[in-house]
Design a protein around this nucleic acid. Structure first.
Lengths: 234, 234
DNA sequence: TGTACATCAGTGAACGCGCGTTCACTGATGTAC
DNA sequence: TGTACATCAGTGAACGCGCGTTCACTGATGTAC
C-alpha cells in the first residue's frame, strides 16, 4: 500500500491546522506568555521555522487559534439560540456551551494576556477588535431572537446588552481561574440569569404585570422586532 | 545645614515605599510581564538587589503594590458609600472613583496578567485570593448600606451581588483597554446602574410598586439590615 | 513518459536579547563597654 | 565621649536560562517541454 502524497497545498493546510490545534492546547496549559513556539512546534511534529512559514508571529498564531475557537463557540450559540424559548433555558444552555469550551477560565485568562500584549501592538489590537466584532454581532442577534421569542424587551440597547454579557462572563471566568471554589458554575449561571431577568420586561403593549420571582414565560406571538443591523465597528 | 541621617528602619521603609510607588507606575505603563525589576529599581534610584532586600520576588512586589492600591480605592468607596442615598448617585460615584484609579483599564489588565501567573504559583494565588477577600468584604458592606438607605432589597444574596459587580466592572475595564472607543465611561456607568436597578426591588413589607423607568427613591426609614459578617474565605 | 528546471514548505542552527534571581561584598548605622 | 565590634540595607556583577525571530539551505512537489 503506497502512501498517497498530498499536494503541497494540502500538506501545508494540514500543518497549519495541526499547529493551530497544538497551539490551542499549549496556550491553555501555560498561558499566552508561558506558551513557547518551541513546544507548540514540537507537539505538532515540526520545527519552529514551520510556524513562521505559516504565521507571521506568535500574535498571528494566537489570532488563528482564537478565530477557530470563536467560530466553534458561535456555532453552538446559534444552534442553542434557535431552539430555546425561555430566558432561563437559553442562558443555561449558553453557560453550558461556554463551560464546555473553557471549564476553568484558562482561556479567558489567555485572552486577557493577549489583550495586554495588544495594548502595545497596534495591528494586533485592531485584529482582535475586528475578531470580537464578529462575536458581538452573533451575540446581539441571539439576544434579539431571545427577546422576540420570550416576548420581552430589554431595558438596555442591544450594544449595551452585548457588552454587559460579554464583560460579565469574562470577568466571572477570570475570577474562576483564581478561585474556583468561590466562582462555581452554578453561581455563574444564577448570576447571569438574574441579571438578564432583571433587565427584561414584558413587550410594550402587553398588559402582563412584571413577575419578579417567576421566570419570564415564553410569548411566541410577540411581534417581530425591527432588527437593526447597524453594527458599525468604530 | 547638615543632612539628618535617618535610622536604618526609616531608611528601609522609605526605599520600600519608593519601590512600591515606582513599581505601580512601571506595571501600569508596561503590564506585569513587560515591567522589569531593572526599570523599577532604576526609577526608585536603587539597584535590583534592593528589590530583593525588600521583597521576595516580583510577585511579592506586585502584591505590595496591589495591596496599597486596594486600600486607597476602598477608602474612597467607604467615603462615598457613607453619604449617598440613591442607587444611581452611589454607582456614579463608584465609577468615578474607579475611573480615577484606572482611567483606561491598564490596571485591570495588569491584575489579569498577575492572575495568569498565579495559576501556576500556588502561594501567589492564595495571597491574591486573601487580598481580594478584603475588597469583597468592603464592597458587600457598601451594597448592604446602599440597600438599607435606598429602601430596597436585592434579588441576589450579597456574595453574588459582590461577585457580579466585581466581575462586571473588571470585564468592562479589560474591554476598555482593548477598545476604548466602544467601552466609554458613560456606557460603563449606564450599564452598571441598569444592572443594579434591575436587581433591586422595594423592601419586603413596602406597598410601593416597582418603578422601572424612575430611579429608586431613597427610603431613609428602612429597617436596619441584620448584617451578617459570615465572610468565610474558603 | 521522461527530463530539466522552478518553487517553496519546512529544517536547523544561530542571533540577539533581556529577564528574574543569587551572592559575596561594602560601608553606614547601631550597640556594648 | 570614644572605641571596637556587629548588623544589615543596598551594591554590582554574574548566573542560568529561554525566548521569538531570522535565514541560508534542502529536498519533495510542481511545471514546461
Amino acid at each position: 500500500m503506497r502512501i498517497v502524497r498530498l499536494t503541497r497545498e494540502a500538506q501545508k493546510a494540514d500543518t497549519r491546522a495541526r499547529l493551530i490545534e497544538c497551539a490551542r492546547r499549549v496556550f491553555l496549559d501555560n498561558g499566552f506568555h508561558a506558551a513557547t513556539l518551541e513546544q507548540i512546534a514540537l507537539e505538532a511534529g515540526v520545527t519552529k521555522g514551520a510556524v513562521y512559514s505559516n504565521f507571521d508571529s506568535k500574535a498571528d498564531l494566537f489570532l488563528a487559534v482564537s478565530g477557530t475557537r470563536m467560530e466553534q463557540r458561535l456555532e453552538g450559540y446559534q444552534r442553542a439560540g434557535a431552539s430555546a424559548t425561555r430566558v432561563e433555558a437559553l442562558v443555561r444552555e449558553f453557560v453550558r456551551i461556554m463551560m464546555s469550551h473553557d471549564p476553568d477560565g484558562r482561556w479567558a485568562s489567555v485572552v486577557a494576556e493577549a489583550w495586554a500584549v495588544a495594548a502595545s501592538d497596534e495591528p494586533f489590537r485592531l485584529a482582535l477588535i475586528e475578531q470580537s466584532a464578529r462575536g458581538n454581532a452573533v451575540i446581539m442577534r441571539a439576544i434579539e431572537d431571545l427577546a422576540e421569542r420570550a416576548g420581552v424587551e430589554f431595558l438596555l440597547p442591544m450594544e449595551k446588552m452585548d457588552m454587559l454579557c460579554v464583560a460579565l462572563v469574562r470577568g466571572m471566568f477570570l475570577q474562576r481561574l483564581l478561585d474556583p471554589a468561590r466562582v462555581t458554575k452554578e453561581r455563574i449561571e444564577d448570576t447571569l440569569i438574574a441579571v438578564i431577568h432583571g433587565l427584561a420586561r414584558p413587550r410594550a403593549g402587553s398588559t402582563q404585570r412584571r413577575a419578579h420571582d417567576e421566570h419570564l414565560a415564553p410569548r411566541p406571538g410577540g411581534r417581530a422586532a425591527a432588527r437593526r443591523r447597524t453594527h458599525r465597528p468604530r
